[in-house]
Amino acid sequence: MPRSSSTLTPDDRLGTAQPAGGGPGDVSRRGTSSAGRSRPTPGATLGLGIATIYLSLLVLIPLAAVLWRSAEGGPGDFWQAMTTPEALSSLKLTVGAAVIVALINLVMGTLIAWVLVRDNFPGKAVVDMLIDLPFALPTIVAGLVLLALYGPGSPLHVNIAYARVGVVVALLFVTLPFVVRTVQPVLLELDKSMEEAATSLGASSAATFRRIILPNLLPAMLSGTALAFARAMSEFGATVLISGNIPFQTQVSSVHIFGQIESDNVHGAAVVSAVLLVIALVVLVSLDVLQRWGARRG
């Protein structure tokens, strides 16, 4: 590489049209990389192309198909299918449960991540591994296990099955890893000297947490929470067993959608799915905006 033989002056870095230094061989090269900042290199173009095709095939086209299907009958039909009493009550329950689950995850997930990073205790590695297990377990099995433990025949004499609280517990189980696994690496990388400096300057531990640690963790906490929220809204396997599926009481949207499909009402299923997608999108975007806003302020 000829570039290695030359040194870049600040002017070069700013990308002036005619670089002063450097051998003739690297003029053109540097010209491409600096002047064409918006024009990607061939390698990057290939990567971008592959990523776009992959995402399109896997995500964009299927999601667009759902939206397309839901819009088939026009806005009137869409509204009607969305506002049937069953659909509305299942949506309310689903979104409500997802919000509660996301908030609990935000607090408990951060706490668990904190304990796993900052504290030392015997069996820590085992606990660390346990966190991922809800991902590995088919969620229907999770529902079955929760039902056996916290259902009518509970050996612990805790019966939360067939009620809304059962839905929340099932969702908590399934979404546990999200916040823990997003916060943990950030906490691990967090420079302890910042905290030490704050303490040595006389900040209380509460102030250190609020002013130093929290702002650093917040982006990770929020993105983990957003993931947990989105996952909670779509969960089927864990909730279908433990909720009891009574329409208007414990039937979540995913089960409602399943019912529509079983009853050959694909349009109704697509409409409720589209509503879930839009809610998830709005939440993901607004958390992202919140995060950026927080980053600018902090």
Partner: peptide, 20 residues
């Protein structure tokens, strides 16, 4: 009088045999 409406007949059987 129905406290649980499972999504399939097999799950209903399971719900019943588990004590509900």
């Amino acid at each position: 009088h129905v406290p649980v409406q499972d999504d399939t007949a097999r799950k209903s059987l399971q719900t019943f045999t588990s004590g509900k």
